Computed example of a mutant assay.
Amino acid sequence: MAKLFIPQNYEPLLNLKQTEHAIKTVKDHFQTALSAELRLRRVTAPLFVMKGTGINDDLNGTERPVAFPVKEFNDQQAEVVHSLAKWKRMMLADYEIEQGFGLYTDMNAIRPDEELSNIHSLYVDQWDWERHITPSEYTINYLKYIVKKIYEVMKRTEFIVFERYPHIKPILPEDITFIHAQELLDKYPDLTPKEREDAIAKEYGAVFVIGIGSTLSHGEKHDGRAPDYDDWSTPTSKDQKGLNGDILVWNPILERSFELSSMGIRVSPEVLSKQLEIENCSERKELMFHKRLLNNELPLSIGGGIGQSRLCMFFLRKAHIGEIQSSIWPADMREQCKANKIILV
């Protein structure tokens, strides 16, 4: 069976009808508040892009995209997007969005290599956002400033849920804690990366782990990150690197850390070249997206993705992402979930 965690004595706090209403409440409020807080314009996003353009996000570099031939293009391959990390940055340029403003969109993806579990589905839905920044904002302090803004939107959304469903009590701490992946390794040297995240999230309630993708002191990465969108190699102190990270919260239902967002300051042309060399994929410089960036045709930016179903799952205290979104699951997982009051839609 795919990985499945059954919370002890689980009782859903909302029935199916209430859940659907609550999902709309969370999504409507959050995207409106996020747009206002970061000054983002909503744009329409593609479901697929042409293969070989360099636009699709390759995540950790191992996940296979869903691809299909396009008859009108002489059977050239198109790919369902993994995310829109690079596409959004091009749109900042094409829409001529000014510094201090940005865009967001509804991103829908299919990730066939996901290992199905309480939190991982073949279907991915998130808000992808990108904001035009100045050279002076290409700093760790600005990254933290934006993270705090997003976290405030999350807290306000949690309160809206509480106002409508008073039995769902707010649990997010007042402030989010920042920690670098190297500090996390130093703090918990005998734990795996996932165990470190669990420990720090349980201790603080909400954390932002900085430096995802950079090599740490023991020669390994905390987690993989593609070399051509986030800047994970710029030194931010003597020993630490990275202008990106993940927002993690403690999930009391699943008794583990819970990633709600991945984000970061995007690579400058210089950092792109550096990171492509580190990852031994300098050939990407010949792709359309990379050429535009190296030719200084794209603005400096910060951006990320915020999981829609993940956010709803957390705020509504659900045990399985399948209680929020409609996807496909192994028959034995459905049966075991049903036997434990976890109703997959």
Rank of each mutant, 00 (worst) to 15 (best):
L272T: 03
H290K: 06
A226T: 03
N280Q: 14
N244E: 07
N280G: 11
L254V: 11
S262E: 02
E270S: 11
K221E: 13
L272Y: 06
K241D: 07
D239R: 07
F258L: 05
T234L: 08
K241F: 08
S257G: 14
C281Q: 07
F289L: 00
T234K: 04
G224K: 10
V267G: 04
V267I: 05
L248N: 08
R284V: 03
I278A: 09
P227K: 01
S237Q: 12
L276D: 08
F258H: 03
F258N: 03
E286P: 04
S282M: 13
G242T: 04
K221F: 13
K274T: 13
H218M: 09
A226P: 00
S268A: 11
G242V: 05
V271S: 03
I265L: 11
V249W: 10
S257Y: 12
E279M: 11
C281H: 07
R266I: 07
R256K: 15
L254Q: 12
V267E: 02
K291D: 03
M263G: 02
V271F: 00
R256I: 09
F258K: 04
K274W: 05
G264S: 06
I253N: 10
R292F: 06
W250V: 09
H222R: 11
L276G: 07
H218Q: 15
W250G: 12
G224M: 13
M288I: 05
G224H: 09
L293K: 01
S262G: 14
D230I: 01
S262C: 12
S233G: 15
N244C: 07
G219L: 10
E283W: 15
P235N: 08
R266C: 03
T215S: 14
V271E: 07
E259R: 04
Q240I: 13
L243D: 00
F289V: 05
L293R: 00
L272F: 07
M263D: 01
E220R: 13
D231Y: 01
N244F: 02
D228Q: 00
D223W: 09
L216P: 06
K238H: 10
